[in-house]
Design a protein around this nucleic acid. Sequence first.
DNA 1: CGTTAGCACTCTTTTCGCCTGAGTGCTAAC
DNA 2: GTTAGCACTCAGGCGAAAAGAGTGCTAACG
Lengths: 343, 343
Amino acid sequence: MELSQRKEKILAAVVEHYIKTGEPVGSKTLLSALDITVSSATIRNEMAELVALGFLEQPHTSAGRIPTNEGYRYYVDRLMGVRPLDESVKRQIEAGVSLKNASPEAILAKASEFLADMTDCAAVSTTPSGENATIKRVEFVPVGTRTGMIVLLTSTGVIKSKVCRSDIDLNSSMIEKFYNIVKSSFLGLPLDEIDTATLQTLVASMGMDALTMIPFVSAVSELAQEAMQTMVMLGGQSNILRYREDYGTTAYELMDFLRRGEPISQLLANSKEDFDVKIGGENKFKQLENSSVIMAHYNIDGDNRGSIGIIGPTRIDYASLIPSVRYLTNLVGELLTQTLNDD
Amino acid sequence: MELSQRKEKILAAVVEHYIKTGEPVGSKTLLSALDITVSSATIRNEMAELVALGFLEQPHTSAGRIPTNEGYRYYVDRLMGVRPLDESVKRQIEAGVSLKNASPEAILAKASEFLADMTDCAAVSTTPSGENATIKRVEFVPVGTRTGMIVLLTSTGVIKSKVCRSDIDLNSSMIEKFYNIVKSSFLGLPLDEIDTATLQTLVASMGMDALTMIPFVSAVSELAQEAMQTMVMLGGQSNILRYREDYGTTAYELMDFLRRGEPISQLLANSKEDFDVKIGGENKFKQLENSSVIMAHYNIDGDNRGSIGIIGPTRIDYASLIPSVRYLTNLVGELLTQTLNDD
DNA sequence: CGTTAGCACTCTTTTCGCCTGAGTGCTAAC
DNA sequence: GTTAGCACTCAGGCGAAAAGAGTGCTAACG
């Protein structure tokens, strides 16, 4: 749907003013914000049409207008000025995510925290998906006479560890056997190919050693499962309280929703675009019906691996936050790729 | 200060009723809750004296009474019935923290979450302090031609890892040298003895190899620093919103305070008792002046290592939550000790 | 026909006063 | 020391009135 240029100007002004103040925008206010030489009555007529078209609405008869979700959508897609990021903001973001030699988890946790602080929104990030990851390395570190710690490193740089308890005292031949099994059966194996079926055939093939090796092998498998799960890192939950009135649901419900993690990761994974904005009910979780989500996906080695996003009220400042989220996400992707491949 | 038995009964009844309802308690209400055969006028007289003594206060002239911090203190110290924990609650707690073969971090994070859910409060826990911990094991895992991952395991079961970048291509003799240095200079060393001075003498003693070994050695040292820091695990922040009106400060300030971590860890570390309750202003953070903290310390191998606590409004249900926190904390201590020493 | 001034109208928000009810403190009697 | 009785205080609720913001409509204008 095409709008006349004047209507577009008015719509954009309403959206921007409402984002800034949170108050319904009236025709007089608009007049002074706009560099159009018409009267407030004309603007009123235009706004009445915009209401009829579904881009604006009135909270009550004698109030100004606020954008509908469609109004925001039109604004984001066609009207919003995508001014390039300020150099100083870029510096700030770069400083915010720079963590040399840290684990992917640490980098993403830091990114969430930083993004939350910068945007005054709640921020989330997901750890790299294990979909195409393989087992890069498995180490066994003895701890006690019957226990040891198994450390697993994946091709995506995720490191997971677990205590493993043997039924009999450890000895060097057992450990050697374990490393042989690792080398022949695990190294290079995609994480998602480790299911109970393959494990069973593996154990069956071990013959005599099966009994002693089971704790080790199953620990590796559990670690692989863990490494495959994407974790959701949450930051700045307290920022939800900043815009309390703007979220339709109670702040409590929203925080509880974020805490769950599972729906969030679904939400973030759902969009395959490089970058996405979900306005209000566009994401189909009713807890988010008055929230917008700005998210971007980061790549490791060119593969879409995970996401970073912020969650705010629908009257979030799209124009300045979208570039920030994108820039930060790209940066994190580069950082992760580099940490991983650097040699 | 000693109170007459009747005053104690009245104080206890006021505290308990106020904790339950959140409403100021009047003399008539008290009459029916108490099994004393006196009139409301007598109770009024007694309450007036309790106000004079500083144990109760009136929000305004024509309202009932609410406990002051001193009132809560007297109640917690002398009046509160310490009924033993229900067997079913014990089972529930045991189920809540049982995580076999998990890292200390994971166990404590789970404990925080669980405690928060159980008590409807915000919960915190600190990871084992590295004070008396030593380096138990250091492993080097090659990742690229010039990079590897260094994994450090402490005597308290904490595992930390870091990417380490060498200036020249890795070869087996370098790795061997590294392991020699580890064996001769790091294994068994208390974490807090690794400062820049000892590092410098170590590097100096390496002579020719110093240059190539510096990245490795400093990575180990950084990991030791990290392992020494206690982390603060936070759970159930959304529960703050449940008692929003009861916290004097805004919910936002409180959440922000919790998020910082540093002050929390100070708060928890400050009390050397086995177990402690801080009521209102007793903890000297002004963000917590209307909050109470119930905390207990867990031991690993008999040493006080870290803490678990909950933060709620001053009108928190001390009588039933204190035993729960203590029981859970002891359990976690046992679990951590066992995970560590089991062999 | 689009634009504009003017005006009555609507609806929210704030304010003010009034009333009610809970609970007290005090006094005088038991 | 305890109790009944009573006047007093104050927060909270209710409703009417006033204020304020902004609209929609009509009629006039170029």
